[in-house]
Amino acid sequence: MANRWKFPDLGFGVGLRTVHYASILADNPPVDWFEVLSENYMDTGGRPLYVLDQVAERYPVVLHGVSMSVGSTDPLNIDFLTKLKALAERTRALWVSDHLCWTGVSGLNVHDLLPMPYTDESLRYTISRVKRISEFLERPLILENPSTYLEFGTSTWTEVDFLSALAQEADCGILLDVNNVYVSSFNHGLDPNHFIDRIPVDRVVQYHLAGHTHKGTHILDTHSDHVIDAVWELYRRSCQRTGGVATLLEWDEKIPSFEVVHAEALKARQYRGLPAMEPKRAYGT
């Protein structure tokens, strides 16, 4: 089922990371697309921007941010949005995403994806913010479900219903992070299948997949390892509903070689019912 904006299914991409710059520029790896961390390129005129320009020339690119602070009660940061819009135009980004969260108030930034209380008040407020952001960016905003480590007693909505209502009312897309669904569900004692089965599929534009760190009492979303089997199964379950959309593998700690990261992304093919593609075949060696 296609998303309502008919954003293309870009296939299987990986996140652009500094440690892979040299190999990407030298080898032109056969990756379907790259996701770019917006904030890393908004205030630099140095090598990161040079590399990004090269990558954007060769591959489809989407922008993914962590600092929009969509749910913050601070005023919108117009300077941030202006730079983000310019970067999206410079890279011809196919879409722009961030998280359903807040990152700070009173002009401060905690640099974390902090959880929202899922209340009527929060929903009304966030809908108005997302509408204003989308209008400013002149494109629909795509929002990701973050990993969360606490629940507010004030919440009257489930996360999935809150996100679904927000997407519907603010007319935004959803970046469904399957690993985050697993992490948050474990941390809150919920059934991850419930989230996967209730998300409105016509709003899902992109998937995220990643590894995590199990601490016994809770799980941290560290992007530091291979995707676990249970997350792959959630991804398969979701693809059966969506028909498959652009899928992105994130790896941010203990990052292995580009080929290993790409191979992990290509594993997603089999869970989507596509023929497996070995990395060697993808690289033509």
Binding site: L114, P117, T154
Partner: peptide, 11 residues
């Protein structure tokens, strides 16, 4: 706790 108060408290 309204949204603003909750966020200021958490931060």
């Amino acid at each position: 706790a309204k949204l603003k108060r909750t966020q200021h408290w958490m931060q």
